[in-house]
Design a protein around this nucleic acid. Structure first.
Lengths: 124, 124
DNA sequence: TTCTTCGTACTAATTTATTAGTATGAGACC
DNA sequence: GGTCTCATACTAATAAATTAGTACGAAGAA
């Protein structure tokens, strides 16, 4: 049996973004946050959060009536993993072509690059 | 019925990479290129290429015995679309945090940034 | 011409991703 | 206690993604 992919799917990411923002959530919290964007069933959200727990993106603890969910790993680590996977898959691991695309697409300005260069200078 | 997503899935991208490299291919060409990486059935490759044709990533022309497939759009355009979709989905459209991750992950060196900054200077 | 090879069209099986319904139980409220 | 609310566990339905098999025809070989 093919294992369920460990990376975040689109819907799962949607939920994680909410968890990252609110930090400590019940299923209902996430459900209500999602309703602001689109129609979804409460149990759908619960199913997804269970999967996220299995995938070790969330951990739950019994609180009062409902479970309270928190992130199981730092957000930065998860995002970094997604970036890594994307760069590997699309650009075979080299980030430079990605950067070129970002610039061409005017997603990055000259100022962004300057700022970053300066930041690197400080850290290294 | 949910429409088939127009973006490239992982397996579809694998095939497109081969098409981009070889430029003009039969199903057999792609099949053999894929076999070097993993076991796959000829008909599987054909099915995927048919889907890619439906999705307008490939176009085919009758040649001799077998169809010859070529890309239907420029590679750059497709990749750019993937980058855009990724930045939108993960970073809500802002590329700068992505850049920070790339640098932190040592995917980008100071030299890469310098090169790019210089390149931008020329173009703008 | 008969057989083998190879290409396509058509069909379908499997798994993940996505969505949600039903059963059930605990606690709040009257 | 009886009823209502709400939370979870369990089950399942559907679609897309992935993989591949079967039927069949055309072309080349013998």
């Amino acid at each position: 049996m093919r294992p369920r992919s460990t990376i975040l799917t689109e819907q799962e990411l949607e939920i994680m973004k909410i968890v990252w923002r609110l930090e400590e959530v019940t299923v209902r919290d996430v459900y209500e946050a999602m309703l602001e964007r689109r129609k979804v069933a409460y149990t759908t959200v619960m199913t997804m959060m269970n999967i996220l727990e299995q995938k070790k993106y969330l951990k739950k603890s019994q609180n009062d009536r409902a479970y309270v969910y928190r992130r199981a790993r730092p957000q930065r680590q998860v995002i970094k993993g997604m970036v890594r996977e994307f760069v590997d898959r699309v650009f075979n691991g080299s980030a430079e072509p990605l950067l070129v695309h970002l610039v061409e697409d005017r997603r990055l300005s000259a100022k962004d690059l300057e700022d970053l260069t300066r930041m690197m200078g400080k850290n290294s």
